[in-house]
Design a protein around this nucleic acid. Structure first.
Lengths: 189, 189
DNA sequence: TAGATTTTTTACCAAATGGTAACTTTTTTA
DNA sequence: TAAAAAAGTTACCATTTGGTAAAAAATCTA
């Protein structure tokens, strides 16, 4: 059942055999979070790799008295401090639930273990690859688009984001202050 | 010999057994480029994965009448349009040599093949993971640092970059115009 | 549900960066 | 090596975004 949800969630991006998802699902443990819970603290090591069944989360960096959002994760996507998981080291990144959320998670050791099995390895490999591609796309937007353009791109990518996530988080993700986002929204109709 | 250079170049970041590097090296073909040669065209599919023995290259995006540099690659590092290599699709990215360069390269099919061998898989896996981490670091700098701070960070990371790479490329990498970089350099001592 | 807290909006001015253009310097090419 | 082309610098003003502050709106909490 969970394996099928996983497979369906990612089939549009890549095809891993159902056996791979079954193996992944076999390691999964369900977990729920209220809104604004710290799922992984800054200066801690990431112990889990999450899949969001419902709800959402943000990856934040603490920077000069406020949080900067590096990424949003919504229903049916993976989520964790991936850098910390990979390096097995503490990072300044914090993972926070943005809504009441239902997730499943697998222990980091099990995630590594999965990467060493022929059938599970594709999931681990592809998650690294798609994470890179997503990050490069974010870099391209930061380098070549204005804040207003980036705001419209984000709305287009996640149409419901405005009703689900605080604007101050969206502003930090866009690389601007909440005041600037408010101004952009005002003139951007 | 090449396997040893490869191993030494990456030992500080991760340890793949010498057998993995020998397998990698076994696929390698030497190739040289003059300055400003197009190594991989935009709208083309990446056919190779490169390792730079000497020289340098940039990954560029064509955007509104000029090139934006997404990344620099110098001696003893990998280099290619990784997104295109992974997706096996054309991208708007272009790889260009920035100096006369000596490289080795392996065919994309051989890179995929390497990823399916137990010993070579670690190289493919780690290259995806470090690419993600590097990109996330770039995102953090774009979101939380001023152009002047990013310029100093870049100089610190690649002290020789100023003498090896055109300032217009550095400016585009920092997300500013060449005029702004010139101004920053003037007041930044 | 009232009060407290947080978030969002608005306004003002300051600072950073962009765009255009002219000039200087460096590099390339004939 | 001289001319041409490209890159870098400087100056000017315009535009975007930041910082501060205060008010309005929304949310949380007792």
């Amino acid at each position: 059942m969970l394996a099928e949800i996983l497979k369906k969630s990612f089939d549009q991006y890549f095809t891993a055999p159902i056996e791979a998802w079954e193996e992944f699902a076999g390691y999964c443990e369900p977990v729920t979070f209220e809104k604004d819970e710290i799922i992984k603290s800054h200066n801690a090591v990431e112990k889990y790799f999450y899949f969001i069944l419902s709800g959402s989360a943000g990856i934040f960096l603490w920077n000069e008295n406020n949080f900067v959002c590096l990424d949003f994760a919504f229903d049916h996507s993976f989520c964790c401090d991936y850098m910390s998981l990979l390096l097995k080291q503490p990072t300044p990144l914090q993972v926070v639930s943005l809504e009441q959320s239902e997730m499943v998670r697998i222990k980091s050791e099990d995630f590594y273990k999965l990467g060493r099995t022929p059938v599970g390895q594709i999931i681990v490999q592809i998650s690294a690859e798609t994470s890179f591609i997503d990050k490069q796309q974010q870099q391209i937007e930061l380098l070549t688009k204005t804040a207003e353009e980036r705001y419209k791109i984000l709305l287009n990518k996640f149409p419901a984001i405005y009703s689900r996530v605080a604007q101050k988080h969206i502003a930090s993700y866009l690389g601007i202050t909440p005041q600037s986002l408010s101004r952009i929204r005002k003139f951007s109709k």
